[in-house]
Simulated scan of single mutants.
Amino acid sequence: MEGPVIWLGDGYEARPLTLEAYRDACARLEGRIFGGNWGYAFDRPVKSPLPLGETFQWGLYHGDDLIGWHHAHQQGERTVYMADTGILPEHQGRGLYSRLLPHVVEVYRQAGYTLVQSHHRATNNRVIIPKLRAGFFLQGLNLYEGGLNVALTLSLDDTYREAMHVRSGFRQAVGETARRLGLNLGPGEEREKAAPCVPMPELPDTEAFDLGGGYTAHPVPYKVYWATYKQLEDVAYQSVSFDWQGAPTASGPTAPSWAWLIAREGEVVGWSAARAWNERTVYMSNTAFLPQHRGKGLYTRLLPHLLDTFQREGYPLVRSHHHVTNNAVIVPKLRAGFRIQGLQTDEHGVMAVLIHAFDPVYRDYMDARSGLTRPRGEVARRLGLHLREDEA
């Protein structure tokens, strides 16, 4: 299927291509676009390729110059798979991918698809961030010939989108979503809980972070943070965690810890806490804002201050876990330089594991592990690879 011409601004447009024209463009340009990736070279396949079903192709043009493409194909009766998008390096970083996304998604919606899926190397934040901002959710990880990939899914059905939140543990199942999941819930009205007014505790003079808009973040002892958290926990979260039924009987590990309370007009409106994970890693264990204070960019403004603190403390890595459908937190983390490094299921649900590295060599190492780049220079040396001079 050929789609419409898509105007992208600044002299760029996406013009529909035939499948053959798309393949010809790949043959001519893919070396310039993907030449720095690190994949595995299989022998020639012995089996014929599977039929693609319905396909969609656009060539990306700047004036009359072909500078990239987008290709997608049917994958089942409900799903279209965004298989390949490439833009020449000199035209990257101009927002083309973000501007293209809503147009092609609308074409897929009009064509009758319910789900849009794609895979990307796990450290390729340049592509993952626009996808998450467009409403895709992180749905899995797979190790394949190209490296470590993240699987992303966009639901064009609002009820299924809510079901993805339920599966991750980010929200409770209610209404039609619960019915579609086979849950026969009893009658009951969900009411939004009112947040109690918790005044900022009296603190010794400490240097607070100014977050703008009248918001400040104050370092506090961990026990002060914990006492405040217990008062506001029920109104800060919609997530559903496993109830362990009783307090733990074993003592927890003793490790350095940090905590902040976020205040506005003398009241606590949020918090952040962290502790040492090991001798090289800080674990950002908990950050939350009360509902009426979300969507104001506070998390984005808070992050640099926290990262500066952890770096000054001498930890080269920062780790955090988030529900895989919690894009409101995952996107600011990725924009701050965190990388998706894993998935895990724990008492809180299905969680994405994010890592931030202050060490530039370790950042390059993560890119090499994901297959986004080839191991070169110091990364190759740290991995024990003795490359030829022209490869190093």
Rank of each mutant, 00 (worst) to 15 (best):
G3M: 13
I6E: 11
W7M: 06
G9H: 09
D10K: 03
Y12L: 02
Y12Q: 06
L17W: 10
L17C: 12
T18A: 12
A21G: 02
A21I: 03
R23N: 15
A25H: 08
G36D: 10
W38Q: 15
Y40W: 15
A41L: 10
F42L: 11
R44H: 08
P45H: 04
V46I: 13
P51D: 11
E54D: 11
Y61L: 14
G63M: 10
H70G: 02
H70L: 08
H71Y: 15
G76E: 14
E77R: 13
I87K: 11
G95C: 00
L101W: 05
V105A: 08
V105T: 04
E106D: 13
E106F: 09
A111I: 01
Q117H: 08
H120T: 07
R121F: 15
N124H: 14
N124R: 10
I129C: 07
L132Y: 05
A134C: 06
F137Q: 10
G140Q: 12
G140R: 13
G146C: 05
N149M: 06
L156M: 11
T159S: 06
R161N: 05
E162P: 00
H165V: 01
G169S: 08
A173M: 05
V174S: 08
V174E: 15
V174Q: 14
T177G: 09
T177R: 09
A178K: 13
L183I: 03
N184C: 04
E192C: 03
E192V: 12
A195I: 11
A195K: 04
P201K: 07
E202Y: 01
D205K: 08
T206P: 02
L211S: 00
T216R: 15
H218N: 12
P221H: 07
Y222K: 10
V224E: 10
Y225R: 09
W226C: 00
V235H: 04
S239F: 08
A250P: 01
G252M: 00
P253F: 00
T254R: 00
S257A: 14
W258S: 00
W258G: 00
L261H: 09
E267Q: 13
S272F: 03
A273R: 13
N278T: 07
N278S: 12
E279Q: 10
T281G: 02
V282M: 03
Y283F: 09
S285D: 11
S285E: 09
F289R: 07
Q292Y: 07
Q292F: 00
H293P: 15
G295P: 05
R301M: 01
H305S: 02
H305R: 04
L306H: 14
L307K: 09
T309V: 12
T309M: 12
F310H: 11
Q311V: 03
G314W: 08
P316S: 02
S320E: 04
S320P: 05
A328M: 06
V331C: 03
V331F: 02
P332N: 02
A336I: 08
F338D: 04
G342F: 01
L343E: 14
T345G: 00
D346A: 15
D346P: 02
V350E: 12
A352Y: 00
D359Y: 05
P360C: 02
Y365H: 13
M366K: 00
G371K: 03
L372F: 06
R374E: 12
R374Q: 15
E378R: 09
V379Y: 01
A380L: 05
R382V: 05
L383C: 01
G384V: 01
G384S: 03
L385R: 10
H386T: 10
L387W: 14
E391N: 06
